[in-house]
Design a protein around this nucleic acid. Sequence first.
DNA 1: TATGAATGAGAGTTCATTCAT
DNA 2: AATGAATGAACTCTCATTCAT
Lengths: 203, 203, 203, 203
Amino acid sequence: MPPSATADETPLRRKLMDAALELFDERTWDGTNVPEIAARAGVAVGTIYRYFPNKQALGEAVFTEAKAAFADAVVTDAVRAADPVTAIGLVWHHQVAFALAYPQAFSFLEHQVHGSYLRPQAYEVVHRLDAELVEILRAAQAAGAVRAGDPQVLLSMAFGAFVGVTKHSRASGVPLGEYDLEGVREAVMSLIGLTGPGSPDAA
Amino acid sequence: MPPSATADETPLRRKLMDAALELFDERTWDGTNVPEIAARAGVAVGTIYRYFPNKQALGEAVFTEAKAAFADAVVTDAVRAADPVTAIGLVWHHQVAFALAYPQAFSFLEHQVHGSYLRPQAYEVVHRLDAELVEILRAAQAAGAVRAGDPQVLLSMAFGAFVGVTKHSRASGVPLGEYDLEGVREAVMSLIGLTGPGSPDAA
Amino acid sequence: MPPSATADETPLRRKLMDAALELFDERTWDGTNVPEIAARAGVAVGTIYRYFPNKQALGEAVFTEAKAAFADAVVTDAVRAADPVTAIGLVWHHQVAFALAYPQAFSFLEHQVHGSYLRPQAYEVVHRLDAELVEILRAAQAAGAVRAGDPQVLLSMAFGAFVGVTKHSRASGVPLGEYDLEGVREAVMSLIGLTGPGSPDAA
Amino acid sequence: MPPSATADETPLRRKLMDAALELFDERTWDGTNVPEIAARAGVAVGTIYRYFPNKQALGEAVFTEAKAAFADAVVTDAVRAADPVTAIGLVWHHQVAFALAYPQAFSFLEHQVHGSYLRPQAYEVVHRLDAELVEILRAAQAAGAVRAGDPQVLLSMAFGAFVGVTKHSRASGVPLGEYDLEGVREAVMSLIGLTGPGSPDAA
DNA sequence: TATGAATGAGAGTTCATTCAT
DNA sequence: AATGAATGAACTCTCATTCAT
């Protein structure tokens, strides 16, 4: 999986998290059973319990790691240092790059409901990322570069639009990379009403 | 639930479908157990099996009914009769009305992954609705009223943007009705690049 | 079913006993469920409980009636009045006639184990019939007309031989009537070592 | 149980098969529930499902093993090599020895109806044994050593006579060994009309 | 009197978790 | 440290029985 792994990394723990992520993405947490995870990771069932106290903890670890990796990938120091408009372009770029590099992590995180196994504290990463992105949008609004309105809603729409495309990619079986992602970017920039320099790759 | 219910309606069957929808929305199909459904419906466990051969069939019935109700609500005869641009406005309006009237059905349908209990044929409604909406977008593109690009992707983005808002509503606990839905509509119309008469309520 | 029905006969009770006998013969008592019996009898489930307090009582009634009918058919007054050798011939004849007339009752009674639903008192008919037949054999032995040895064992063998034929008939699907029953009789008479006038139909 | 056990033997699997045979004999397959089997075998319920996919498969395994053990015990190479008359004597001897050594297996196999849980293929052993024994009787008839008539019927009678004795033994609670089995043998030999050297133990 | 929808205890089965090896 | 057979609570489903109609 992506970097930002927790400290106590181990080859087996890594294999377990990867196998679990794959299966949770395919079948959801509730729909996956522990022996399957062990089988996919190529270890015995008992081994799982040397690394995680129970299935719920494994679920939380997988979710938290994936979400943290996404957050770290999307909001980099460069994003924090940039002006709002540039930041938005960077964020978009990073988000797409993450979804391309880790499609399973992305769809596990964004196409499912996670209430059954996450304790409230697991949402901290989510909220922190949310807050940072909302702040960027707010700043962009203040600069008159982005449409008015609740920036949280703006964010939900923009991100939702992209998630919509990844859902379609997953349902159709066509890899995200084969879509016209530049077209998607332009449409979403229209959605948020962004004017000015859009693509970070632009000259 | 919404109209378009299957022929063999019965008060108890109705109560079971409603209770099941609520729980599937809260906890997913895999995360809900049969006694809970019975309890919520106020009947004994065995009663469920007088109306559905098994839990999977109940899941399919709930999903299919909700999706069909959504499809019927969104693509009405008026939509089919209208010109593309008007049709888009109507569709948007209907979709929002459905999400406001049946928030649980909407989030059950759109915030989850349903692979574990639906047989392929259950997706027929999904595909039919999809095809109709794509056709409307295609016609609008032909008329030069909507941004170019794969209409399927355009649809995924536009619908995804709205789903993003409903997700946020659900996560925050703020009812969808308290959001600035007119603002959302305008943003999404910009997303698809729609020009011309937008809101069906507009003078 | 055969005569000797219990006093409180009723058309519905009769249909229920007949349907139950058929099903118990096909699937055993444990393997038959109450709704099936109702369906076969053409009545509603609840009706069964107006005639029998529970499934076990129905089982006992069916078993007891069938066994009593068999006993009454086999040991008639004529048998009781006859000399041992003639009695044996008559008993054989009656037994075969019963198995031909009521194959389901016969195989239900003789091809199965009934321990799970009969209270000890239900075996009284069995023991009474047994005792009468054993007495006939003992008298025949005393007259030197039948092989020596425990008459109970002799009876078990002779009856078992016939049951063996009915089992084969049932397994092969060939009705008992198509077998060479006269040959069977002669063989069994040899088994018990009976000399003298054998067949009651003989000139 | 008897030898001829299937390859994948295991102490627990053995205990389960033994416990199941006992209970199926006492209460029939339909009348026995899974927790009882587990309790009798001294294991937890779940353990059963590590060795058998379901209750039906356990029933089939028990039936098939017992029947195969019986067939192997009865028709040995010595039987196949012997002349028909000697073979009949040996078969009789083996059958009695099996019933003495494994009374539960014998009565489970022969006092019950097994239709509810056996797939047709489970009857293959039954038919193979039957065919071999019928062939022996046919050869004996050809040699003029045994009564004329359908050899299948002759077999059913002879075996049925012995089964009749085991049924009585079971019902009365008197172990089979306390019966005059030599007398039983002689009677059955008369039944099939066997002349010539009877008992294999005879000088 | 007869019905059959409703019941819930108990059946068969699954699976997260433990622990002797 | 890793294993996987064993466990038993909890699941899905069945069916004997009840009772309002």
